[in-house]
């Protein structure tokens, strides 16, 4: 009974955070800021949903698989964000106009001025 309630509570928290991630994806200005929400909030959201499955079914095969999936998401989502942002920057996707500093752009220009986009 207590586990059931706890599981539902964690599920609602997780869904709320996933909702926030999608809201951030729509509201924030450029690709880098959007990646902030999808990696950070998305990770905790998915983690909470998986944790709620574990609390509901206990350490049965399904619960163990759920917690494995949660750990994989925790490890792989930063790597995905890293690759997406790097690829975006190399393709010349600029920062939004509110940005105050871009030290990576400067380093890229001096290192690979041949490939620089006009």
């Amino acid at each position: 009974m207590v586990l059931e309630l706890l599981s539902n509570a964690v599920l609602i928290i997780g869904l709320f955070f996933v909702f926030l991630a999608m809201l951030g994806l729509a509201r924030l200005p450029d690709v880098y800021n959007r990646l902030h929400t999808t990696t950070k909030i998305g990770t905790l959201g998915a983690f909470s949903v998986m944790l709620s499955i574990l609390l509901k079914v206990g350490f049965s095969p399904m619960g163990v698989k759920a917690i494995t999936v949660a750990l994989f998401i925790l490890i792989t989502s930063p790597v995905a964000a890293h690759m997406i942002s790097r690829a975006a920057h190399r393709h010349g996707v600029g920062l939004c106009k509110e940005s105050v500093i871009d030290e990576y752009g400067k380093a890229c220009e001096s290192a690979c001025s041949i490939n620089e986009r006009e």
Binding site: F17, L20, L23, G24, R27, L28, P29, D30, Y32, N33, H36, T37, K40, I41, T43, L44, L95, C96, E98, S99, V100, I101, D102, E103, Y104, G105, A107
Partner: peptide, 26 residues
Amino acid sequence: EIIKANIMVAKIVLQPKIDIKPGIIA
């Protein structure tokens, strides 16, 4: 740190007007 990060980003997302000063730092 993950929990702190989520609360911080959630605050930014829920602001009525998004007021951020992003940038890339070395």
